[in-house]
Simulated assay, not measured.
Amino acid sequence: MSQKKGIGKTALITGASSGIGQELAKLFAQDGYNLVLVARSVETLHRLSEVFEMNYGTEEVLVIEKDLSEEDAARDVYEQVKAKGITVDVLVNDAGVSTYGKFATETDWETEKSLIHLNVLTTTLLTKLYLKDMVARNEGKILNLASLVSITPFPLQAVYAATKSYVWNLTQSLVNELKDTNVTVTALMPNATDTDFFNKAGASDTLVTEMLDDPAMVAKDGYDALMAGKPKVVPGGIKNKAFEVMAYTMPQEMLASQMRKFNTPKQQVKEEAKSSGLAIGIGLAAVALTGIALAALYRNASWSDKLQAQYQYGKAKYKAGKAYDQVKHAVSEVLA
């Protein structure tokens, strides 16, 4: 039996009551970590605490009931943990929410303000407070939940995508700042995942909900990357890796249109598909195949091979762009 890595260490996990956060908490418990679990659903956290203690022998679990969208919530959590004399070895910023609808006319500012506070301000302050302690000890790890939409437009969830872009950018900047220390920061970039996220956002009937990843898989890939000190991880197989490549290479107008389609009610997509014919599907399939090929090449390629791949991509992008022009009008009509 392998030695548990987390014996004597503590992981603090926000959003631990469900979804990816709960799966991450389970992995930390299995690895011997003591836990600080933060969420609004305190009853769920207490039940989890009992399960972890019974199944994995978790020695200490501190449950903190907190709405992290509130002013000074991050500092309050930090002070509560500090008052208990607990050293946080790993911070997981998992808590996050979204809202659904057209930014100009359908979404509510108070909801969006709360979303920004949780996804950006709380994440930033928790990171700052604990990172300062970690750098002083020259030891520690932080996992920030970004998203694949942190590198794409995401119409109808525009503010959510913007906040995740912030988390992605902050994380990668910190990776550079910390390169001469033993402290690491990792961005977890999942695709759409089978949690209560879309239901809470009011987007439970959108097309993307038919192509959800397993939260246990997402958590495991994120946990492994965190432990290895990687700057980022895109969980899942070649499909998600190809999606990442496409996000960097597809024309932004086309990418925004496709992301809008994913975020459109399923019945509306079906009705529009009947009138748009096969052109859109063929064009997107061509780009997808290009992305998959590039992702497969990049996985094991040498530096010189990657330069060659970029050159080949340039030619492929030109051809894809011509195909895109042919279907641009149809796409605009369907997704406008």
Rank of each mutant, 00 (worst) to 15 (best):
E106H: 04
Y313N: 15
V233N: 03
V135E: 13
F52K: 08
L148D: 01
A296R: 14
A29N: 06
K84D: 01
M217T: 11
A192H: 00
A161K: 10
S204W: 07
A219F: 05
A293E: 02
A293M: 05
S114W: 05
D213W: 01
E70M: 06
E271H: 06
D31Y: 11
Y311D: 14
L45R: 02
V183D: 06
V81K: 13
N191T: 02
L294T: 10
V167R: 02
G101N: 02
V175P: 04
P153N: 10
E50H: 15
Q268A: 13
K128T: 07
Q310C: 01
A285G: 15
V149T: 13
A219I: 10
V61G: 09
E244R: 14
K230A: 09
G281I: 00
K132E: 15
Y223P: 08
S18N: 15
G281W: 00
M211R: 07
S165L: 01
V149W: 01
K102T: 10
K82D: 12
Y33G: 05
K319V: 14
Q258H: 12
K84H: 11
V287A: 13
M250R: 12
Q268V: 15
L62V: 12
V97P: 00
A316T: 10
I282C: 04
V42M: 01
S302V: 06
K220P: 01
S114D: 03
E70T: 06
G229F: 03
L45C: 07
T124Q: 12
T14Y: 13
D194L: 10
K113E: 11
K200G: 03
G202V: 03
T181H: 06
A295H: 03
A228V: 03
Y311H: 14
V61E: 06
Q310F: 00
K328C: 07
